[in-house]
């Protein structure tokens, strides 16, 4: 038995006759905080789709928690925060509590109501992201960063051990981005939740994640952050293709 959460072997995926992913081998060990970077159209979103079982690779195999993805049933172990999560209708009359509880809807199942214990779970998840005092506020009244925390809570409410976040910091100001990474770090270290984080922001990512994977149709680099940070710009731009503008960070 491997302890890997995700194990992808020789994965290829093509839209019509264009490769989106080619020969991907990726292991995500338990406890990882893995950053996934790469240019637009490099296949990041496709990779996530495959991991969530929303698309099937034409080639290769995926194992989740040591189980073949076709036979994998414990989807509540995997939480997902979509890139589009904060594109919701701001005028929607829903409280934080109501939004977070939708994270359990699918697990509870049809023809059943939320139990008292499950309602308590909602409050715990909101507490975990430090938003307890906003439980009964309308979600549209919160700031972008706060909303993003609520969407994390929505993913946390079903007790996942692996959380996938797709560009979660888009549209959040720098100060709050730092706080946000602080929260992720806490979830990773204290709550023992493994993370896969897709982001454009290589600089911030390398400071917080403990591993980086660089994806541009093929997986170019998958190693620890120190090794990634020591890569020269030339090497980086090879991964990215030609039209690269690397954002360098001063520490």
């Amino acid at each position: 038995m491997s302890t890997s959460i995700v194990s992808m072997k020789n994965i290829s995926y093509a839209y019509e006759n264009k490769y989106a992913l080619k020969d991907i081998n990726l292991e995500i060990p338990n406890g990882a905080f893995l950053g996934l970077v790469g240019p637009n159209g490099g296949g990041k979103t496709t990779l996530i789709k495959l991991l969530l079982g929303l698309a099937r690779p034409q080639q290769g195999s995926i194992q989740l928690f040591g189980k073949d993805i076709q036979h994998f049933k414990e989807w509540n172990k995997i939480g997902f925060v979509s890139q589009k999560a904060n594109a919701f209708n701001r005028g929607f009359p829903a409280t934080v509590k109501e939004v977070v509880s939708t994270g359990m809807t699918a697990n509870v199942g049809y023809f059943k109501f939320f139990s008292r214990k499950q309602k308590q779970k909602v409050e715990e998840a909101v507490e975990m992201v430090g938003m307890s005092s906003y439980l009964n506020q309308n979600i549209g009244d919160l700031s972008g960063g706060q909303q993003q925390r609520i969407f994390i809570a929505r993913a946390l409410v079903s007790d996942p051990v692996f959380l996938i976040l797709d560009e979660p910091t888009v549209g959040i100001d720098t100060e709050n981005v730092e706080k946000f990474y602080g929260l992720l770090k806490k979830l990773n270290e204290e709550n023992n939740i493994s993370l896969l984080l897709v982001s454009h922001d290589i600089g911030t990512m390398t400071r917080h994640a403990n591993g980086v994977a660089c994806l541009n149709k093929t997986l170019h680099f998958h190693g620890n952050t120190a090794a990634f940070a020591s890569l020269s710009e030339e090497e980086l731009s090879r991964f990215y293709g030609h039209d690269l503008s690397v954002v360098t960070h001063q520490h």
């Binding site: 969530l52 929303l54 989807w75 997902f80 979509s82 589009k84 999560a85 919701f88 929607f92 829903a94 109501e98 939004v99 509880s101 939708t102 809807t105 699918a106 509870v108 049809y110 109501f113 939320f114 929505r154």
Partner: peptide
């Protein structure tokens, strides 16, 4: 609960099954 989830965030509802 399903209708509410679907109304608030259709993509999330679909991804959740």
């Amino acid at each position: 609960k399903e209708l509410f989830m679907l109304s608030f965030d259709e993509e999330h509802a679909v991804v959740s099954g």
